[in-house]
Write a protein that binds this DNA or RNA. Structure first.
Lengths: 176, 176
DNA sequence: CAGATAAGTCAACATGACTGTCCTTAATTC
DNA sequence: GAATTAAGGACAGTCATGTTGACTTATCTG
């Protein structure tokens, strides 16, 4: 899956996407609103690409989020997944039951703590997640490519700044 | 509302938030996943701040989005709002009826096209939107301040790159 | 005038979140 | 070893927000 989008990469080297740069007074209301709006439209644009695949499977975005995090951290516990998603046990239960019934996700009893149920993708679950990821990747790789490497660093920095400091370790752990 | 967060602004000048910079191979899967995750957590972190205010009013995020765009573009038509939100007329109708019944939003017949209903906030609607905006602003201003001006430009560039080119004019028009 | 467009309305339905409660099993603590 | 705590599952009801489809009214445009 470590596939370079060569077209986007080429474009990155050649012509970074022009956007109006932030002004020295980049905390003015208009610039705040610009960030709010771009975050809203960017986020919804990115995830919209996977919706068609999900719908064909009779799954929704909630299922996608679970598949994504289980793929990212195989063997994570139900409690850890609840914490990442920020939803209740009961909300996650239905999603996890759906995924289990479709044999996309498997549970094993924890080794160190046998109360835990550790989650992994089955082969077909991994295949579906890969297809969904490819959709997100297409969108993100194009954006990275158009904006350029330096912009990506700024993109990450602002987004991490939006996360309350108390929650940052969890996000960083995911990416360790 | 053009309030500078002086603490954040000072911090911006002094010590931009350190994040692992994007590598030259910034299209590798890990870096794509990092973007996906930060976008998810950043977006949800930002909007979560307004939820308490909304809940106290008996309103939800759908109401907030309508209030936001009506505040941003006073006098926009119902059709324009549908297009911005990407939802159906029937979905918006319920939200707009709620906001009208609470006298937060008013409708006027269009001047150039009398079929249109042009939306504006009432005084109390504007007051509520301002409170909600202040919450988002707090979060965004802190992130801008921590990351620094240059990072903000990159943040905008990547997000605009995520938006399909066909949809970009609409986003830019909002910010004209 | 005929057809297209903007908007409103009613109905039925799906999804994904919530709360609350009860239960089982396993780990921890006294 | 007994009591408490923690992880998870199950069941029930509710709410917010989206969807389709069908129909109406007013207005604009060719």
């Amino acid at each position: 899956m470590t596939v370079l989008n060569s077209a986007a990469a080429t474009q990155a080297a050649v012509s970074p996407l022009k956007v109006t740069p932030a002004s020295p007074l980049f905390l003015r209301e208009d610039e705040i609103r610009r960030g709010i709006e771009l975050l809203y439209f960017g986020y919804t644009s990115m995830i919209r690409g996977a919706d068609a695949i999900l719908e064909a499977q009779g799954l929704g975005r909630a299922h996608h989020r679970s598949l994504y995090f289980i793929a990212r951290r195989p063997g994570l516990s139900v409690g850890e997944l609840i914490s990442l998603l920020g939803i209740t046990k009961q909300s996650l239960a239905r999603v996890l039951n759906d995924l289990g019934n479709r044999e996309l996700v498997e549970q094993r009893v924890g080794v160190v703590d046998r109360r835990q149920r550790l989650l992994t993708l089955t082969a077909s679950g991994a295949a579906l997640e890969a297809r969904l990821f490819t959709e997100l990747e297409r969108s993100m790789a194009r954006a990275y490519g158009e904006a350029g490497q330096q912009a990506v660093t700024g993109f990450w920095a602002v987004l991490m700044g939006l996360v309350p400091p108390a929650d940052r370790p969890q996000v960083e752990a995911l990416q360790g």
